[in-house]
Structure formats: C-alpha cells, structure tokens
C-alpha cells in the first residue's frame, strides 16, 4: 500500500531521517514509536504526501507521491484517512459537519449518507455531542471525532498520529478497539504512539509490527517491548 524507499528528510537544518525504508502491506497493522521529536509526525506526513522526502521515494498505491499534482494529492487524501495529532477541525462547524467534511468536499450528498454518518458517530460514542462545536469538546472526544472523520470515506489506509495522546487508559483502550476493528475490516493501519502500554495491549489483539525511530533511523522493534 505504502512504501518508503530509502528516504531522507530534513526541515532545512540537520538531517531528521536517514535511509528510512518500510513497507505497509495491505491489511497490516503497524505502530510507529520513538522519543518525542524523533520524527514520527514527520514520517507520517511523508506517507500521506503532506511532505516530500529530500531523498529517496515514497510510493502510495503504486504511485510516486512526489509526482502527484495538487488534484491527485487530494485524491490520495481521500484514500488515506488521517487522524492528526492536533486534530485539525473547522471550528465554525459542528462535530457532525466536521465528521462529514470529507463527504462534503468530495461532493457526496449528505442526505444519502445520513444513516452511515449516524452509525459512525454512534460507533465513536459522540451521538450526544454531535451538534457541539470542536472547541467545546474534550481532548478525547476530539480524537474520537478525528478518527470518525478519518474513516468516513472508507479509506484503504488509516494513519493515526498519537490518537490516544489526550485520553485516559479506558478511553485509549476504546480507541484502540476502534482501530483494531478497522483492521479486521481489512484496512491498513499505521499508528504513531509513544504509549508502550497501549502497544503491548494491542499486540494481544492483533498481529501488529512495531517500528521505532531513533537516531534518524527506522528499525523494527523486537520482543523487547
């Protein structure tokens, strides 16, 4: 689905990532871990084409991401659902409208999708809060809403950046179950997290591989977790 081929990246200062290679096979579940500032968010952005590598190549759905024009990048975003670390909502719209946003911008009539939308909002446990504006939500509620928005178009790949960053243990377990459920539905999942307890809990539920970034390199973590 997504291949990183020997990529390097820097924001203009020193090299942040060097010689990073990885492959996300269809239906796989990967965690990405590493210390804060190691470049997890950066690596995810490279995967969905928000950044382009300074060297090497990123391929998504067998297309070179760098070669995509703006419209093709937009189409890629529809096939890759992203939960951003800082959620990224439109604050003047309700949570319901924010979750529906990918449908709206791809020109789908909301009326015909209303059933799906309500089901999804119920699935992330936000039925009561659907009419609230994003700033009125708690951190965990926002992250659940972000997850719902990421999957509304039924993308093949779901990328989540610290989806459990703001929530307590119970809530992080709930979010994890949602991701596991998506994986069972056949989606390819990539989750950045430094929550090792969460990763251990996940390994009991799915076959998940753990990638670790440290010292600019990406390695496959072994049984030491």
């Amino acid at each position: 689905m997504i291949e990183l081929d020997n990529i390097g990246y820097n924001y203009g200062g020193g090299e942040l990532l060097t010689n990073v290679s990885a492959q996300l096979a269809p239906g796989s579940f990967h965690f990405l871990t590493g210390p804060s500032g190691a470049g997890k968010t950066t690596l995810l952005k490279l995967c969905y084409g928000a950044l382009h590598p300074t060297s090497g190549r990123v391929r998504a759905f067998n297309m070179d991401v760098k070669g995509l024009d703006r419209d093709q990048t937009a189409m890629l975003r529809r096939r890759v659902g992203v939960v951003h670390q800082d959620c990224q909502f439109l604050n003047h719209l309700s949570i319901y409208e924010n979750i529906a946003l990918p449908l709206t911008v791809s020109g789908k009539a909301l009326d015909s999708e209303e059933g799906n939308l309500n089901e999804l909002i119920n699935w992330v446990g936000l039925s009561e809060r659907a009419e609230a504006k994003p700033p009125e939500l708690s951190g965990g509620e926002r992250q659940r809403a972000a997850l719902a928005r990421a999957v509304i178009l039924s993308p093949d790949v779901v990328i989540a950046d610290e989806p459990t960053g703001n929530v307590d243990w119970d809530m992080s377990q709930r979010l994890l179950r949602l991701l596991v459920e998506l994986n069972r539905m056949g989606k390819t999942i990539l989750v950045a997290s430094h929550d090792l307890a969460l990763i251990r809990a996940a390994k009991n539920q799915v076959q998940a591989r753990v990638l670790r970034i440290s010292d600019r390199r990406l390695t496959l973590a072994g049984a030491d977790l």
Binding site: D71, R77, Q88, F89, L90, L101, V105
Partner: peptide, 15 residues
C-alpha cells in the same frame, strides 16, 4: 487555516 483543513480531507482546489 480552513483551506489547509479542507485540503487535508481531500478537497480539490477547484472546490
């Protein structure tokens, strides 16, 4: 900011 969010969820420039 709004434009960035719209792009993140796959809005075309024309939209």
């Amino acid at each position: 900011q709004v434009i960035e969010v719209l792009r993140l969820v796959g809005a075309l420039d024309s939209y």
